[in-house]
Design a protein around this nucleic acid. Structure first.
Lengths: 358, 358
DNA sequence: ATGAAAGCGCTAACAA
DNA sequence: TTGTTAGCGCTTTCAT
């Protein structure tokens, strides 16, 4: 089982069977200084004055041994590490992956590492994962919003705060005011989308909605209604379709084309839903992208292949903001919990052509 | 700066300003046993016999204090942690995210945590990240293949092995035979794709290629040529297009439709490239998806919206296999480095219709 | 069946 | 300017 049996040159009385990595003691011995001096030099402390000779002796010794400090020791001393935990529902969704990109880049630049925890939408697993993060002594936890585990949040967040672990929630505003929160402004986004359709001359605009378990779909419906009302257009309940916020549902839009409730445009709460609906129309032979205008939400990768006008939420930026807020807190800046609503942006493509009557 | 100033009930001589988490010593005191006993109980050791009374006393005390073991201490003792590092070029690509999903699920089940390191395609950063992982005393490193940093691999891999850190490379076979490797079988995949087109009656099949910096694009070209030759079809260099393996390139396929080098089908080395090409045709008004058949590669999210026939690489499975191989190694199973070629799968959609002459 | 003590790698306080 | 010492939270001999 033991492969490299090199009893490392006598500094311990017992023979070590596993290769031990050089410690700061080894560096100290080689440089002929004390362990404390090594620590002073290697952490470039400005408050300690070190002579140039010792400094270079230490540096040379560290180099020779290819010494790498053990972050665990540091963490044990300080009670916490330079590590943050990221609790993810599902990085299969590019929206979440992009949040992660933003988080990572900010944290990496600030010297923090990221421990990931994937809850797979299972509340049970989430509790496990949070515990794991705590045992790792992470300095903070970033929680990415998710329908399934949203109910678990309050319980562990309270505990985390009690244990001096900072928390920031991204893409969910249910803990708004209690912890730092970064969300996309869904009401504004829906206003952009529907306002755009109205400016194109559309008045019969259908709404393709989803589950309102999270605030996402609800807020987008609110924005939809706001935009209509702002332009003096009545909200017609017959034009509100869809019940689930899942891409595996097949919303049937044919009534909008042939039925008594004709529409000239559709605003959907997610690109997935809209894409699905377009596919269905196309599949049924009533491929009429030229008579029904579409605006989706989320600017997913596939949307440009459908020439789909949509709303960009800037998830990378959301991640960045969440990270930098946490970094601020971790570096001692205290403030009341802040909620940051990232403004979305309209991305115009061919699917939102002007109404024919125009 | 210090918020919760609770000098925790006298067990230290100095007043602690920051709230300290309960340690195993605290549990021991409360349970009126020794620290060692606490350790025995909480790690459920089978080799130590503990009376039922002490066991429950300890458990109760731990519960009361909501004690959470400090993994750092454990790690410092054992020289390594129950953590593995994952080195990613870019989790903006869903292929990579999916690998991560597979990795995570296997590792989580085995009790390992994941520390992520994003090299952003920068070799310089990669060195930094590897160092960071080493300092964290990860037990192993999973490297996900990438053109830009591929050249860095040998250097740090050698060092890692020397430091007793296991390595497994996913989606790159350049270290084939030196470390465990998990890749997708690109030659087989291209054979599937082109074989399918041939079985549909196509003979004039164009190849849309990419940069051959990694083996990916080259292997897919080899598979393309193999399939043609296997069916007695000559390889026509005039039908090989494209130079870059990037989705921001606009391959012009119009010569295949109108020029002297007509083709009836196209096999592209990535769905992105093919999607781009289809978009361009559509954009130029020569939207003739019905006269040119397409097969892509990768089965990206958007592909189904283009009804694109493609090759599924099973990235989640690739991640799973990489993780379980590493777990095996970490639990002491030794063997020579293994290369695992995950078989790809053909996904047939409308874009690969039969040749008209058929 | 349990405990005392040493020690992992490091930094902070205090001495020299 | 540098060194000595203690101690972070834990597991592991070795005693009892």
């Amino acid at each position: 089982m033991i492969t490299g049996l090199t009893g490392n040159a006598g500094h311990g009385s017992r023979i070590n069977l596993v290769r031990k990595r050089p410690s700061s003691i080894d560096v100290a011995r080689l440089a002929e200084v004390s362990q404390a001096t090594v620590s002073y030099v290697l952490s470039n402390r400005t408050d300690k004055v070190i002579s140039e000779v010792t400094r270079s002796k230490v540096l040379a010794a560290a180099e020779k041994l290819s010494y790498m400090p053990n972050r665990l020791a540091d963490g044990i001393l300080r009670g916490k590490t330079l590590t943050v935990g990221v609790l993810m529902p599902d990085f299969g969704h590019s929206f979440n992956s992009k949040i992660l990109i933003g988080l990572e880049s900010e944290f990496a630049d600030a010297g923090y590492s990221i421990l990931i925890a994937h809850n797979r939408n299972e509340p049970e697993l989430e509790r496990h994962q949070v515990r794991m993060l705590m045992e790792h002594r992470v300095a903070g936890i970033i929680a990415v919003g998710d329908e399934a585990t949203i109910a678990e949040l309050p319980a562990w967040v309270e505990q985390a705060i009690k244990l001096d672990v900072d928390v920031c929630v991204v893409d969910d505003s249910s803990l708004d005011g209690i912890v730092d929160t970064v969300v996309s402004d869904d009401i504004a986004g829906a206003n952009l989308a529907v306002g755009h359709l109205i400016s194109q001359g559309h008045e019969r605009i259908a709404f393709l909605g989803g589950s309102e378990l999270t605030t996402t779909s609800r807020d987008r419906r609110i924005g939809y209604e706001q935009a209509l009302q702002r332009h003096g257009i009545d909200v017609d309940p017959a034009l509100q379709l869809g019940h689930h916020y899942r891409t595996d549902v097949d919303p049937d839009l044919s009534p909008l084309i042939v039925g008594p409730h004709r529409a000239t445009a559709v605003f959907g709460v997610s690109d997935g839903l809209v894409g699905q609906a377009m596919m269905r129309l196309e599949s049924e032979g009533i491929y009429r992208r030229d008579i029904l205008a579409f605006v989706g939400y989320g600017n997913l990768e596939f949307s440009r292949y459908l020439w789909l006008t949509t709303i960009e939420q800037h998830p990378i930026e959301m991640g960045r903001r969440a990270a930098s807020r946490m970094i601020a807190r971790l570096s001692g800046k205290v403030s009341d919990p802040v909620t940051d609503r990232v403004p979305p942006e309209l991305v115009v493509r061919r699917s939102s052509f002007p109404a024919k009557e125009f």
